[in-house]
Nucleic acid binder design. Structure first.
Length: 902
DNA sequence: TTGCACCATAGATCTTTGCGCTTC
DNA sequence: AGAAGCGCTTTGATCTATGGTGCA
């Protein structure tokens, strides 16, 4: 259950909202935890991810199911349900590429809203957040699967076999140079002939190494693995053919496009160009390795496999391209218009109607090589760990012009970060970069690829930001990292961390702090003054800021050039005062000193309807926008209300007392912030005023938050004692009620079981069709049906079950029911008081007669009409059959009232 | 290349006292 | 009959920070 945030003026529970903070807290309590909903969802998902690693198809089902379980909000369930059902067919394929299909229903909402020129509503934001989170997890899991496939020994074998002799030699060379293998055994002669110098060097070194340390790496020309990797990349670029589109972000599509896409996907024969590349299983992956063609994504995956096949530790890196959660251009689907840009003609696969696709097919075939050529950055690549230095080398086998980026070269690594107009157009983003290791674990390596390794950098707006979760007393927060939590299921255990892990975590994955712009003592620029913490121009003052009266400029700044040059005084920031309106000061427990003149006058910001009307009215009268004065702290003083007299609490025009800060409580009075104190005060007959501790805003209204009361200090003890007694009574009442409810539920449950058992015994069971058939001939079932039709306001499953009870009871003189005498246990605590009476009054047969006769008569007569205290339908069947659906059957007056109420 | 204007976007801040229905 | 309780709906205009682009 999401936390219930009472938007009540009488705040009856929970810690006092901290006036000002209270609103953010409260209004964002739904907001803050609301984004958390996906977190919870994801939480379980990530768990399921890890546990489901063998069953990819189930994952998405799980995701949606769990989300339904955990999301209480009905709208949400709907949304998710829709999503999941829409996704399911897609999901069946191991390729997760078309999760964007999931948004159809929601999209309708969104576009409706956007038509109205309003921003997205909270729920729409939630939907996007949910979608984003789900998509991220699906992509993550997809990558985990591909990573597992890239580990396949058969795939390795296939790729190894294809390597030409030259590459094998390079590998050998690398092994020797890295000290993984001793050089002398045999391969020298041919090698030394080819590259005499190097071979000689190797030889020299090896000779030495024999004497000293065998297996010492030769680092004289840098890490030997870099040479090998470059060779491999060159080989791969030559051999691997890009014949299918890879994953990409399309953005949220219009409903029509989605529907077309879904139908097309479901009904048409699979066409990689339209539906994306589909690799159903490992066998197909092996086949692709054999053919050496596919999307560039698969190309990178297979390249990773190749590197692994050579015994080098390699990670498959995926830069997730999930649907986002914002409303920027990047999240909006932009249909590809082939005619516009010849370069894009190879992209006909999107969601264009059949005709378009047909048109585009021919040119696409001709330019098969150009799939995804509009994507300037790779989505998958490889991280190779040097066995010598344990450093990570990033390798993009197919896309970038600088394919190999050693860890030392941060610029080259930052080349993997999508940026620029082209990337923008292609909706390429960086938000979560995850490296999957050969042992199946994965770790986030985004930092490495951010320019200057500075957060949030380009991930801003595309990655779930850290969320501040309030903890403990007010003002304390912890940062909640959603993605960190998702990754927990994939991470390598702390104790199994490798040397590579440790090294990179202490170096390349350490984020840099954003450089604070050093306060340059050089000449002023507009920019430097704007951001300066020391100086300021008057025009850069904020709405709530004003210069201290009499503040002297320290120098002047000349803005503009030539004829437009203008001198402006430069002031010290220290001379800037924060100002607030009189109302705002009031909320801080302060008032303006008599005679204070506003330092600044600004237009009134009216939020509530009433204030808006007032402002409009004033504007109409005066013809100009009404202004309000702002005052600095110096111009205000504490509000010290006069001490109370004779225990009377002063009240404001709304009949309560402002208590925004403790100092606003008058001397001689005490604030008792307990819920329900008003009633106690009334009972005790002491004077009180409800304490307004803040406001909540919503629906163009400001609602005061009331927390307890202010009473005379001498009454405090009395009030608290009485409140304790009252609260205790209340607690007991509620406990009793809850207990009753529980017992009631159990009883119904047991009856149900007994009935079921009985029915099974009598008629056999298990076949619903047969049951239905039988029902049509069963007079009691027919009667039940009829009765249900008569009772317009029946009450769902419960009622139905109870009806069932009565029917069967009537039929078999007790049936599966607890008849009086046998039901002591069940009734215990429920109808104790009436037990004797009911037993003496009617026996089982009586019950049966009543029941079988017609429950209607009972209803119309009403138990209370006959004999209120005795008529409590304590007999289980009667009572249930009567009309009590939920609770407190033992209180005849209540049931009477309720009946009358209807 | 630098400084600036301008734009898009996200996030923070400010705002300051109902209404109608149901239950008890 | 009338008091008390509860749900409604989660604003929204404005300002500020930030980063990108284009121009001089």
């Amino acid at each position: 259950m999401p936390p219930f945030v009472p938007r009540k003026r009488v705040s009856s529970e929970d810690p006092p909202p901290a006036k000002r903070q209270a609103r953010p807290d409260n209004s964002q309590a739904p907001q803050a935890p609301a984004p958390r909903a996906p977190f919870h969802l994801s939480d379980s998902d990530s768990d399921s991810n890890s546990s489901l690693s063998d069953a990819p198809e189930n994952l998405k089902d799980n995701v949606s199911e769990e989300s339904e379980d955990e999301e209480e909000d009905i709208d949400w369930e709907d949304a998710i349900d829709t999503k999941s059902s829409a996704t399911t067919p897609t999901v069946a394929a191991p390729e997760l590429q078309d999760l964007e299909l999931t948004l159809d229903q929601n999209e309708t909402h969104v576009s409706d809203l956007l038509d109205g020129k309003k921003g997205p509503s909270k729920i729409e934001r939630q939907i996007r957040i949910q979608t984003h989170c789900m998509h991220v997890q699906c992509l993550l899991f997809h990558n985990a699967i591909r990573n597992a496939w890239s580990n396949d020994s058969k795939v390795h074998e296939i790729l190894r076999k294809k390597l030409p002799e030259g590459i094998h030699k390079e590998v050998k060379k690398w092994r020797i140079a890295s000290g993984l293998e001793l050089p002398e055994p045999k391969p020298e002669p041919p090698q030394s002939k080819k590259k005499g110098k190097k071979a000689k060097k190797n030889k020299d070194w090896s000779d030495e190494s024999e004497r000293l340390e065998p297996g010492q790496p030769d680092m004289s020309r840098g890490d030997p693995i870099i040479i090998l990797i470059k060779v491999l990349v060159a080989y791969w670029r030559k051999q691997f053919r890009i014949t299918a589109p890879g994953l990409r972000k399309y953005g949220y599509r219009p409903v029509a496009a989605l529907e077309t896409a879904i139908t097309d996907f479901r009904e048409e024969e699979h066409d990689p160009e339209r539906h994306g590349e589909r690799i159903a299983d490992l066998d197909e992956f092996r086949a692709i390795a054999e053919r050496m063609q596919g999307s560039r994504d698969v190309g990178a995956q297979l390249f990773t496999a190749l590197v692994r096949a050579l015994g080098i530790e390699a990670r498959l890196v995926g830069s997730l391209q999930p649907l986002g959660f914002g409303w920027t251009k990047g999240e909006t689907y932009t249909p590809v218009t082939p005619s516009e840009d010849p370069e894009k003609e190879e992209e006909p696969e999107t969601t264009e109607p059949e005709t378009d696709v047909a048109e585009n097919k021919a040119p696409a075939k001709n330019k098969r090589k150009q799939f995804d050529s509009d994507l300037p950055f790779p989505i998958y690549w490889t991280e190779v760990a040097s066995p010598v230095t344990n450093e990570i080398i990033s390798v993009d086998p197919l896309v970038l012009s600088n394919p190999v980026a050693p860890f030392t070269d941060t610029d080259l690594q930052a080349n993997f970060e999508p940026r620029g107009a082209k990337a923008d157009r292609a909706k390429q983003v960086i938000c979560y970069v995850v490296a999957h290791s050969s042992d199946g674990t994965a770790k986030e390596v985004t930092t490495r690829y951010l320019r200057r390794r500075t957060w949030p950098g380009k991930t801003k707006g595309f990655r779930m930001p850290l969320e501040k979760v309030p903890v403990g007393p007010r003002g304390n927060y912890i940062a909640f990292d959603w993605f960190g939590m998702v990754m927990r299921g994939y991470q390598r255990a702390r104790k199994s961390k490798t040397a590579v892990d440790k090294l990179e975590e202490s170096r390349d994955l350490q984020p840099n702090q954003p450089e604070k712009k050093k306060t340059t003592q050089t000449a002023d620029t507009l920019q430097s003054l704007r951001t300066s913490t020391e100086f300021v121009l008057e025009r850069f003052l904020r709405r709530e800021e004003a210069l201290r009266p009499g503040a002297e400029p320290v120098r002047t700044f000349i803005a503009g050039k030539g004829a437009r040059a203008k001198e402006e005084p430069v002031f010290r920031r220290a001379d800037v005062l924060k100002c607030l309106s009189a109302e705002s000061w009031h909320k801080e427990g302060r008032q303006t000193k008599p005679g204070a003149v506003a330092l600044k006058r600004v237009p009134i910001r009216a939020v509530t309807l009433i204030r808006k009307r007032e402002v409009d009215e004033m504007q109409r009268q005066t013809g100009e926008k009404p202004l309000q004065g702002l005052y600095s702290r110096d111009q205000t003083e504490y509000i010290v209300p006069p001490p109370i007299q004779d225990g009377r609490i002063p009240k404001n025009e709304y009949g309560n007392i402002d208590c925004f800060v403790p100092s606003m409580v008058p001397a001689g009075a005490t604030h008792v912030p307990l819920p329900g104190t008003v009633r106690v005060c009334k009972k005790l007959g002491i004077d009180y005023a409800e304490a307004v501790t803040g406001f909540e805003f919503g629906s163009k209204m400001a609602v005061p938050v009331i927390q307890g009361v202010v009473v005379a200090a001498e009454n405090e003890g009395l009030l608290r004692d009485a409140w304790k007694v009252d609260a205790e009574e209340k607690r007991k009442r509620e406990e009793l009620k809850a207990e009753k409810k529980i017992l009631q539920t159990w009883r119904k449950f047991l009856f149900g079981l007994r009935i079921m058992e009985r029915v099974r015994d009598e008629y056999g069971g298990g076949d619903p069709d047969a049951d239905r058939e039988r029902d049509s001939h069963n007079p009691f079932a027919v009667q039940k049906k009829k009765k249900r039709e008569e009772e317009a306001d029946d009450d769902g499953a419960d009622q139905e079950m109870l009806d069932q009870e009565s029917s069967y009871n009537a039929f078999d003189h007790g049936g599966g029911f607890l008849l009086p005498g046998q039901d002591d246990d069940a009734d215990d605590g429920l109808v104790v008081e009436n037990h004797d009476q009911q037993r003496s009054q009617k026996g089982p047969s009586q019950t049966d007669v009543d029941d079988a006769d017609d429950s209607k008569s009972f209803e119309s007569g009403g138990p209370s009409a006959d004999s209120p205290p005795l008529s409590i339908p304590s007999d289980s069947d009667e009572e249930d059959n009567g009309k009590d659906e939920d609770s407190e059957p033992e209180y005849a007056p209540r049931s009477t009232r309720r009946t009358r109420g209807r």
